[in-house]
């Protein structure tokens, strides 16, 4: 990993966490509503995966604010979406769970567990068809690997040797259900083993995630066919703001928080990448300012007009279509 990339990753992880805490705060005040799924604790995975997979296309879930930002969306437009404002990335119509930006090859923001996986497989087919092997990365949780969409996708991706990276974020929980109560084993890569190359990494370590995904993308580009990476991680908050997190003991939470990806990577910055304390503080300051700016922007942004309700139900006006 180059020094500049390390700096970028730390900046985005730090920014991501600050962003999530602000979102939490503004959920409490009512500026943000609905389901808000915080990514605190999983920043290394969200940031390093996006940074490593710079080319290609990305499909992901509802826990995607940090991924969207790491993919290149500006924090202020993401925050504005959480606030339901017209200048939000989805015009205020999608909200926290539905961030879309095709200009960054980022296709949601899907809140039907597992639903994005077949879509990503289809996109990988399209890319291969077009002669483009940069690849598609599809991110999903350990809750999605028990559903039919997942198994069907492994089979189709392998049969067609598609350029797709399956990235499983295994935080061991689907809302309140531990993976061990929903599947016969904790390691979900075992399900993909018969179909494709698999790898398991520590999702709390940004460098490990980064290197694994970088390598995977270069394999895809060489025409390797589908790859499955599983990253073990841990969310520090409840499933969403509606979840009191009562099913995890304080012991378990302590164990989880001991693996905090931020101090781990900060230490790497100091020891391996030779940043000074001052340089790191400058990075943190810049991130804090960006989040502050995002909140101000979202607060002052305009609500969508009522006409927006009927816009974008269809792409075409019927009378524009001639056969």
């Amino acid at each position: 990993m180059e020094k500049l990339i390390a700096q970028d990753i730390y900046y985005l992880m730090y920014l991501g966490r600050a962003f999530e805490y602000k979102a939490k705060e503004h959920y409490m005040t009512g500026d943000i509503s609905g389901f808000l799924h915080l990514d605190i604790g999983q920043e290394a995975l969200s940031v390093a995966s996006m940074k490593a997979f710079e080319k290609g296309d990305v499909f992901t879930t509802y826990r995607e604010h940090i991924m969207a930002i790491a993919r290149g969306m500006e924090p202020k437009y993401v925050m504005a979406e959480l606030f339901g404002k017209a200048s939000g990335v989805s015009g205020g119509k999608g909200g926290s769970m539905h961030l879309f930006d095709p200009s960054h090859f980022f296709y949601g923001g899907d809140a039907i567990v597992g639903g994005q996986i077949p879509n990503a497989v289809g996109c990988a087919y399209a890319r291969k068809y077009q002669g483009n092997l940069e690849g598609v990365m599809v991110v999903f949780g350990d809750g999605a690997t028990n559903g039919g969409a997942f198994f069907e996708s492994l089979n189709i991706a392998a049969t067609h040797k598609l350029p797709i990276l399956f990235l499983c974020e295994n935080n061991e929980y689907a809302i309140g259900t531990n993976i061990k109560r929903a599947a016969p084993f904790r390691e979900q890569y075992k399900k993909a083993e018969p179909y494709m190359l698999t790898k398991a990494v520590d999702g709390m370590k940004a460098d490990e995630v980064y290197n694994a995904i970088k390598e995977a993308q270069s394999l895809l580009e060489k025409g390797h066919g589908p790859i499955f990476i599983e990253a073990y991680t841990c969310r520090f908050e409840g499933h969403s703001m509606s979840d009191a997190n009562l099913y995890r003991s304080s012991q378990e939470m302590k164990h989880c928080k001991a693996k905090d990806p931020l101090p781990y990577f900060k230490n790497k910055m100091l020891t391996e990448f030779n940043f000074t304390q001052e340089e790191i503080e400058a990075v943190e300051k810049k991130a804090d300012e960006s989040v502050q700016e995002a909140v101000e922007f979202a607060t002052n942004a305009k609500e969508p007009s009522l006409d927006a309700l009927y816009e974008h139900v269809f792409y075409e006006e019927l009378n524009n279509v001639v056969s």
Binding site: G34, G84, K93, L306, A308, L309
Partner: peptide, 16 residues
Amino acid sequence: GEDVPIPYNRKLELAS
């Protein structure tokens, strides 16, 4: 309800 998917924004949601 209106013939639209349900939007997130509260004002639009109530209008739907």
